[in-house]
Amino acid sequence: MSKKMKIMVPCDEAHHVCDKSQYKESSIWERMKLYMHLIFCKACRKYSKNNKKLSTTIHKAKVECLDKKCKEAMRLEFEKALKDQLK
């Protein structure tokens, strides 16, 4: 418990919480510790800002990619063609 109640956290933990927050997986207590850390740590403030920017950018771009099943189907067909080619 004593470890959990610490308010000051080191930078690597702050990074970890910041990463988790990008996927909305951090708890409120973790976020509070992160903000406490950000008050005095300039490097982490910068990291946090860039991290957020990356998240919003990717969200904004609405990138899509193939899901695994499609890719597998594609791979099968492609390998068949590749074998035919080599014959």
Partner: peptide, 18 residues
Amino acid sequence: NPNKWIDLYSDYLFNYTI
């Protein structure tokens, strides 16, 4: 190196197309 095409480029090409 066609063996690696699907791994390396399918997402890029797909996003380009979509």
